[in-house]
Nucleic acid binder design. Structure first.
Lengths: 217, 217
DNA sequence: ATTTGTGAACGCATTCACAGCT
DNA sequence: AGCTGTGAATGCGTTCACAAAT
């Protein structure tokens, strides 16, 4: 099963939430595709990986499909989340509404700075020292770790998470840590994204790509 | 040219910076691949899109290749950046070291909250009202916009950026705005990433994927 | 001997197009 | 008539393998 498919399922889920909020109760793949700029075949193929949720000639029932996707993504169950690094980014993520929603619960932040330990984020999420990681992970049934520490600290922090039993990691540091088999790490590399935009700007300034005007005389 | 290639170029650049810091001055694609867990053919193919930077039988000169990639990505030139939304995330991004580095300069944040206008981020980046967007973009030669506002405000904010002449946008809100041709928008959807990890956890708990133990008797 | 640069082969993901069902 | 589910076709990205170069 492709990771691209699962990411699209998240998108579809959000679309279905929008539709439900609008009071729509039935939707076809074509309708959804048009409304949200998706591809209808792809919607159907993605869903086909997990079952048959539609009715031929009719379409999909919004609330039912929504529940199905929630179940597929494991959002029918709440996962505890810890955030490693209580800097600006860690704090922002701790209070990010999207991370404190169905399926997830931010349990705590961890930092090595003694000045931060014992304080909380703006929304009141506690900041602990690293020595408390194992006990918090055990007690709060934490399955997910978010890493927002400087590059040089990443591998050590990830190793600590893996030792504590966390097998899913979202890493924001600009260095891809090595993780053992059976552990998944998704890297969100903000600098790479920004540099990709810089390339776009640079190449659209540079006339190299479009050497001539319109070909039509 | 694939966006995947340009994102990998950012990675290669970071690797080369590491190598330079270690005092390495020549490197082969195989060496780089092993050290940073990449694929040597892919490195060569990616580079081949932009020229011939190596010497057969020898490899690449670190400082030269580094400069070449900086030029390709447009980092030999500083782009002004504005951040829309001075909430937790916007503020964290404004002070993020990776965004205040070679090739980029965070110029200002913008917010509609009168209580924030006139204040600054922790690192001193000014927060303006939306009415000042056009003048700031004009005066500071801003080419890049980062969007960190709630979903319902995204499209309006993006339209304002486009009107002001910003043609490259990094969007953190959970809604993909429509942008005109010639404008590029990269969406970083944090909730999608987290839900993708939730799926991984869910499917590795669920024995459906691996119905049996080891096949070897 | 070693490594680049690249055409060819491969594999994966998307899109098409239609049979099957309501 | 209309829409799903899916095999077939296409397109894209990665990997292989080797000729060209030092």
């Amino acid at each position: 099963m492709s990771e691209l498919t699962t990411k699209r399922l998240s998108l579809y889920l959000r679309c279905l939430e929008d539709l439900a909020a609008l009071g729509v109760d039935k939707v076809s793949s074509r309708e959804m595709a048009e409304r949200f700029q998706l591809n209808s075949s792809q919607i159907r193929k993605d869903l086909a990986c997990f079952g048959e949720f539609g009715v031929r000639g009719v379409g999909y029932e919004v609330s039912q499909l929504r529940r199905e996707i929630e179940t597929i993504l494991g959002l029918d169950r709440t996962s505890g989340v810890v955030i490693m690094g209580a800097g600006n980014l860690g704090n922002a993520l701790a209070d990010y509404p999207g991370f404190n929603s169905r399926g997830f619960e931010i349990v705590a932040l961890f930092d090595s700075d003694p000045g931060k330990i014992g304080t909380t984020s703006k929304q009141g999420k506690p900041i602990h020292g690293l020595d408390e990681l194992d006990s918090v992970v055990d007690e709060a049934d934490v399955e997910l770790g978010i890493v927002a520490v400087p590059a040089e600290a990443v591998q050590g922090v990830v190793d600590r998470l893996v030792d504590a039993g966390v097998r899913a990691i979202l890493n924001f540091a600009p260095l891809r840590p090595v993780v053992p088999d059976g552990t998944r790490c998704i890297n969100v590399d903000l600098k790479v994204e920004l540099e990709s935009l810089s390339f776009f700007l640079s190449s659209s300034r540079d006339p190299a790509d479009e050497p001539e005007g319109p070909v039509l005389a």
